[in-house]
Amino acid sequence: MSFSLATPATPDEAFEFLAQDPEATAILAGGTDLLLDLEEGLVRPRTVVSLRRLPWREIRWNGPRLTIGSLAPLADLEADAGLRRRLPSLAKAIHAVGSLALRHRATLGGNLGRASPASDLIPLLLVLDARLSLVRRGDRRELRLDEFIVGSRRTALAAGELIESVTIPAPLPSEYLWQRVRLANDISQVGVAVARGTTTSAWRIALGGVTPRSVRLPSAEKLLGPGLPAPLAMELAAQEAAQRAPFTTDKRATEAYRRRLVYVLVKRAVAAVAASADALPETPSPSRTAKKSVPAKARSTSAR
């Protein structure tokens, strides 16, 4: 395996490298996925363009609107006090990725660019209505995350294009729960993200884990109705989610067990969001900024 490595200093330089040989060029961010693919010969690029020197690392709030640079290392994000306070579910989902060592390198853009069916971030970003800002020489467009991810490891990214940032319109009361065999460096058997829209009050449920792409479950969402659901509605929605989820058996879990996990995790996540729904501040209040908020220590299964 041999390739040439380019480390452009500006986005424009990067676009130039990308334009030269777009079909045989790989994009390198943290490299936690790409290096394995290179090692196993799954990709054989002639050129690897490293984004190491590009800026795109900031976390910016504009009122309720949150924009995160695609190259922000996940470890920086989970340590960000503002994110932990205003959107604790995302800090928690980020904490679920790999191990701390991995998160020092892995980036948000890389996680979305990879479009892995087992991503711990995609389900939550789906229910948070995330949008991607995609840039190319002299061109910029915005795509919803569900438009961007088109299949297992397949995205709508065009040749020569880069993810610049990810935007979440507003933090919502939300929760991400997952189950895996061990604490760190493991793939979730199932991940469940739940959010409740503040204006429409509509519930959103998304699953990750095995389907080729993360999916929303509208029929289960509907059963929760607007407003705070009664226990029976939560039970029915969890059952519906477990039934509807398009799962299969693989070496990590059987279909039957995955359905069981969806049932339990949807029930728990909905209950957690319902309990927190009214407590979550929309905008930072000065009195709270000084207070340190630490997300609960993640465990090998959030379902315990």
């Binding site: 065999v181 061990r182 760190a184 460096n185 493991d186 070496k251 090998s300």
Partner: peptide, 15 residues
């Protein structure tokens, strides 16, 4: 089926 340390799972320190 699981010839690697991702799917042959030894405990991590946290476990």
């Amino acid at each position: 089926l699981n010839p690697g340390l991702l799917d042959y799972r030894i405990p991590t320190l946290g476990d």
